[in-house]
Design a protein around this nucleic acid. Structure first.
Lengths: 237, 237
DNA sequence: CGGACGTTTCGACGACGATCGAAGCATATC
DNA sequence: GATATGCTTCGATCGTCGTCGAAACGTCCG
């Protein structure tokens, strides 16, 4: 009866490895041209074009034409969320730990998700903020910022009151890809990452989504938040 | 980089219509035997068995053997969440409204989901119950029944106090497929549908899951709940 | 035990769809 | 205009997977 066209249909769109690779490449919200997505998926331009058309129809992507390029991006945050939730499902068997590339390791350690901090560092920081009572989980996947929290952010030069909440609130809980936990997102999350970068605690890579923790940043995070992390290079993987 | 090997794999498990139907049948957390799932998906027992084995491997289902039955259920709340988020993705385009068969139209208008009311009518009624303050959304996808609500149900001859809550509560929020919203489920939902049928407001079809709204029912629902709906036969699509 | 029932395994068939080569369009560059 | 580049459409091939019939396995019941 096909009462659920969207459901299985959407899943089948994600099910193809090539399409999944493209979606993953787009998950941080960037817009990429078709050719680059083809490269990311390891397929020819023709095949990629066909896939992109399907994802477009399926409501997973949006596209903007600019000159002779066509830039594709996720249709919205709800798509990113759905993808992230999908990733929480794992095969039951103890999946053999694959040896990760150094890059993958760094990416897992700290990266930007849209414009906020994600990865082990992002989750650790968010946990610490909660433990200190600076932010508290609220309904609808949001965080409330406490008075103490506003003061603490202020000490970093981040004026919480100056931030303009979007329709979805000031601070949101964003499910973390690799860590299976939440990290800080929303306008506060964006400002937080920017503040930490400006202060020289973090460094964003230009080419990828990797975020590096500087020695200075490591020290400050430990002192101010009690967050103690190993740099990516020392992680087992 | 294959940071998420299981990603496309999990999606492909959901992508099959038969498997999707089984997952949907399980989305409220109940455990169902293989045969019933086969029936729900409209396939033979052999085929269903193969699908169930895959879903099991994929970490989407758990199973408990009891006598000669095998009861399958979702592997956890995270699976249900992922499924629901998937359902939020819709084709962008007001996809050319397919001419639905009269049956599909009726099914979309009102049907029973297990033993409670679903479809446009189910969602409308549930929304009205919330607006009137008779039920309020609670944690863990449950509804709480207010004192006013208990009184209102009592006026219908439905004694809320006489209902025995299951382990999952007295009233639950069940995701509605076609309407992309929640409707009332759980013991209260079951009793509600039964009461409305007994009162002659609704009529359940014996062969299918279609539920018909009688003229009397239409009038009563409008007066008592402020619910105003068009009968299925007058709907456009 | 023997028969009924629920479930799984095996094998074969058939259809859907992912893929790429070749060609067609559109835009940019000279 | 002519040519290169980025992307899409068309057509054909091929592998994969969903499907069911037949049969085996296990449990319940008389």
């Amino acid at each position: 009866m096909s009462l659920l066209p969207s459901f299985a249909g959407v899943a089948s769109l994600i099910a193809d490895p090539a399409r999944a690779a493209m979606l993953i490449a787009l998950i941080d919200g960037r817009a990429l041209p078709a050719g680059e997505l083809a490269y990311a998926a390891g397929i020819t331009a023709q095949t990629a074009s066909s896939h992109l058309a399907k994802l477009l129809d399926g409501g997973l992507l949006r596209v903007e034409t600019e000159g002779r390029h066509r830039y594709y991006r996720l249709a919205g945050a709800h798509v990113a969320q759905a993808l992230e939730h999908l990733a929480t499902i794992r095969p039951t068997e103890p999946v053999r730990r694959k040896a990760r590339t150094p890059q993958a390791r760094e990416l897992r350690f700290a990266r930007c998700c849209y414009d906020h901090l994600a990865g082990q560092l992002g989750v650790a920081a968010t946990c610490a903020l909660q433990e200190k009572g600076f932010i508290v989980p609220a309904e609808d996947k949001k965080f409330d910022v406490t008075a103490a929290g506003a003061a603490w952010f202020g000490g970093l030069g981040l004026d919480v009151k100056a931030l303009r909440p979007t329709r979805r609130g000031l601070a949101r809980q964003c499910l973390d890809w690799t860590e299976r936990s939440h990290h800080l997102a929303g306008p506060l999350g964006v400002a937080f990452l920017k503040t930490l970068c400006d202060a020289g605690w973090l460094r964003r890579s230009r080419a990828s989504r990797i975020v590096q923790l500087t020695p200075r940043g490591r020290l400050e995070l430990k002192e101010r938040l009690g967050v103690e992390v190993q740099p990516a290079s020392e992680l087992a993987g």
